[in-house]
């Protein structure tokens, strides 16, 4: 699974992109975020308030209960501020 991080999530996690293999019990966006938060202090800090974390799976906005699987591109970012 390819993970992408943008804006302050990228800065706090300390990486823009990585490939991970989550444990098999991780099947949803919510479970993926919970697992990521255990991977180190940067992750925990970046993911401590999920109300300001948005997720896209394969470049489509996704909610906590939406499925994730091997091979997906999952992006984590703050609420968007373009325009």
């Amino acid at each position: 699974m390819k993970l992408l991080y943008f804006a302050w999530l990228r800065q706090r996690i300390g990486s823009a992109e990585e490939t991970v293999t989550p444990p098999p019990e991780v099947t949803t966006v919510g479970e993926l975020l919970a697992w990521l938060a255990t991977r180190g202090p940067g992750y925990a800090e970046a993911l401590k308030d999920l109300s300001v974390v948005r997720v896209a799976v394969n470049q489509e906005f996704a909610q906590s209960g939406d499925p994730v699987k091997a091979g997906d591109e999952v992006a984590l970012f703050p609420p968007v501020t373009g325009g």
Binding site: A56, F61, A75, F77, P78, V80, T81, G82, G83
Partner: peptide, 11 residues
């Protein structure tokens, strides 16, 4: 719509 759903971030 662009303001709230296009993936851009400003610093």
């Amino acid at each position: 719509w662009l303001k709230t759903s296009a993936p851009f971030w400003k610093q």
